[in-house]
Simulated assay, not measured.
Amino acid sequence: MQPRAVDAAGVAHDLAGADARIVSLVPSITETLFALGLERQIVGRTGFCVHPHDKVRAVSKVGGTKAVKLDAIRALHPTHLIVNVDENERDTVEQLRAFVPHIVVTHPQTPRDNLALYALLGAIFGREEDARRLAAALEARLQEAAAHSFAAQNVLYLIWREPWMTVARDTYIAAMLRLVSWRTLPDVQGGIKGAARYPAIGFDDAPWLGEIDRVLLASEPYRFTPAHRDALARDPRMAGKRIELIDGEMTSWYGVRAIDGIGYLLRQAAAA
């Protein structure tokens, strides 16, 4: 008997048929489904699912990762819906259960967790060989990162302004940064889910700010620009700190993007 694939919610999934109709509410998962060769079975995606550029344009949009259009999904008659613990709202997912037969929950928390993600999607959709190919590429990247020795640095990774927001230590982003010995400050743990995983911070009462070596301004979810970087560099509280823009897709997108993302971080750290 074909072994069943177990998702992040502990739900076991049988092998999907060739007529599976997939809606993905997770941008990085959408990109990964294409990398697994499932182009003909992807029928819906969010407006934030923008990769691969030349292929997603043919796939119907069903709203955003949180502002999901239930009727748009219903009209597509999906057999499978792919969601993520951090990116999608539980209440929305529960409403979708009423008419989507199979909901696959994902929740990679470290770069290595992508190996299980590849295997899960490959097993459900009959793309085991493609999943093994991605796994081999990721393993090579992880080994490359482990072979390097970078000087430890404390970083402030900013994802939003007004208010300023950063990432907790138990996020996927923080785990990616640790591959190149970049440790996120402040030292907070956010738990399984919640706003504390992406806390709002201030600079006036922040004793840890003096320990920061570099400030990273991510390109998403807030699109920081050179103007934001230059303005922050003029802030006297940032004196002596390296302030730079960083590609948020490379640090926060899991799935197939992790392969290139690790390489990107290795280059960033080597250029320091």
Rank of each mutant, 00 (worst) to 15 (best):
A18W: 02
I42K: 03
P207K: 08
E89T: 07
I103A: 02
T46P: 04
I42Q: 04
P111S: 13
P111G: 13
E128K: 03
G63I: 10
D7E: 02
L179M: 08
I124T: 08
S219C: 05
I173E: 01
V155C: 02
A119M: 08
I259T: 04
N88A: 12
H77T: 09
V155R: 00
A135H: 02
G210S: 14
P221A: 15
W160D: 10
R229D: 01
A131N: 01
V155M: 01
K69A: 15
V104F: 04
P199Y: 12
V11D: 05
P52H: 10
G44C: 11
G122L: 14
F34R: 05
D213G: 09
I192N: 06
V100E: 11
V68F: 04
R223K: 14
A20Q: 04
A8R: 07
H53F: 13
L117T: 03
A136P: 01
R74Q: 14
E94D: 15
M165V: 10
L76P: 02
G37M: 11
D7C: 01
L185A: 10
L156N: 12
V155D: 00
V26Q: 04
D113W: 08
L265A: 02
I201K: 05
I124E: 12
G37Y: 07
P27A: 14
L76V: 06
A35H: 03
V93E: 10
V180W: 06
P163Y: 06
L96V: 05
A272E: 13
L179H: 07
A145P: 02
L216T: 00
A272H: 06
R57S: 15
T184E: 14
A119Q: 14
E144V: 01
M165T: 08
D204F: 02
W160S: 05
R178Y: 00
V11T: 15
E220L: 13
Q2C: 05
E244L: 00
A8S: 15
I173H: 00
I173K: 00
P111H: 08
G17V: 05
R223Y: 15
L158C: 01
I212K: 05
S24A: 13
F203E: 09
Y157A: 11
D19S: 11
R112Q: 15
Y198G: 06
M176V: 00
V68G: 04
H13V: 13
P101D: 13
L15G: 01
I259E: 12
E128V: 04
R141H: 09
H107K: 06
